[in-house]
Design a protein around this nucleic acid. Sequence first.
RNA 1: GCCCCCAUCGUCUAGAGGCCUAGGACGCCACCCUUUCAAGGUGGAGAUCAGGGGUUCGAAUCCCCUUGGGGGCACCA
Length: 499
Amino acid sequence: MSVRVRIAPSPTGPLHIGTARTALFNYLFAKRMGGTFILRLEDTDVARSTLAYEQDILDGLHWLGLEWDEGPEVAGLPARGPFGPYRQMQRLDRYSAAAEKLLAEDKAYHCYCSQEELAADKAAQEAAHQPPHYVGRCAQLSPEQRAAREAEGRRPVVRFRVGEGVVAFDDIVRGHVEIDKTALGGDLIIVRSDGTPLYHFTVCVDDTDMEISHVIRGEDHLSNTPKHILLFQALGADVPQFAHLPLILNPDRTKMSKRKSQTAVADYRAQGYIPEAFVNFLSLLGWSSGTEEEIFTLDELAERFSLERVQSGGAVFDRERLEWLNGQWIRKLTDDELVERCLPFLVTAVEVAAGPSGSSRTPSAEDLRSLMPMVRERMSTLAAVGPLLDFLFVDQLSVEPDLLVPKRWDAPTTAEALTAARGIIAEVGQVSFEADELEPPLRALAEERGWKAGDLFMAIRVAITGKTATPPLFDTMVALGYERTLERIDAAREALTGL
RNA sequence: GCCCCCAUCGUCUAGAGGCCUAGGACGCCACCCUUUCAAGGUGGAGAUCAGGGGUUCGAAUCCCCUUGGGGGCACCA
């Protein structure tokens, strides 16, 4: 039996962390088992589905490297796979055929209950402390009764007969699960009164048609699984294997949500997280290799993954850990790769630093390439290049005057030190402006005047960068250039006289 | 309310009866390196394995109960 798994996102919002993790685990399982990974778009909620969301989801999956083997036509690319269409709105005839079949076999029936009747039932059940369920008012209507309701102009929904008893299944991650049918809420609606099918039904029809062998999804679907099993059986289909993954949680241990966490994959991407780290991080939410290694590429994960090693308790999304992993992965990239990925972040950071009226030079790939060695181990996200280098490209540096004076110093000392340092720097620059040439004479100056070298360097650092945390000072001076280094020191001296 | 699931350091986890006086990682603290910030190195604090009963010569590991947490109960997906 071949392994066929799917990810079935609904384009009613941007790609969510939880969907991405589910996609990843399905992908890894398929790769590991030599199976097929399928993408199916569940777009039957026409009111909330948009093309923009669909594009965001597709972009996100591509970004993560989760290429699907079968899927719909998207953005000009043709559909792939023999089980299409892979878009639910193109499968409506399949659902109505399946519904007709269930109706014909009396496994489903037309229900004419109004929203008001249903609401009243629910209220009564609540008052009686009973679980909400459909009372079965239309379960045994005679042809005459049906005709009477039709005559009133009522449009029926299709309800699936749930019956009595217990549904049991063996979940790959949770083990044996049994749920009594009375907990299912009564006969469930599979087709709306407007004729459009509902989620639980479409999933089962599609999974059957697409010969899905394993349904790997979030734990929030565990309670729905009996409904699906019943539907599969009624459809005369083989019931797939189920594996319910632990939920990804907010810090307060509730299901991860937009309200309490950042849930859109695109937002992390925009903040400079890289896919290698993101995939690695996601893989560790609910799964572990069983060894003490934890840095893995997508391919390495695919070699090691198994559903048996999936955790059953929920996992809090820990941003600090993601950030650490991101830094690890950034340091693994080559300079060229890093330059390519960082450049857009640097460019916008420079624009922001220059301000709406300020002028600046737009950094090039060559610029960044030469600066890479001094920043790469200082970045945990791509966006971190910004504050590390933006001051090199803005024409007018704005420095907080108070910052100019090192902690142990006062303004006159600082001015004096900058003046002395300027002289030395100017002198060195006459011959060759290099980091190795600058450091010894400046250290000598500090010694001579009885200053701590660190204080002197800090004064210069702030003067030329406007910041107290920067890449190594002498490299920074060289990167800035002789002229501009002196200009900025002069500007700082001037600013100091005002203090 | 009803049903289901879950439960090891703050967080992610290792652990499938003796190897556990519970291991690793993130974070935190200290020290080293050091011109700042990082990175790196070393060390440390941090979990009576939710609690209580069993089973067993022996339990974090098996069973039961309690407690706590979460999820699901739509003409949403």
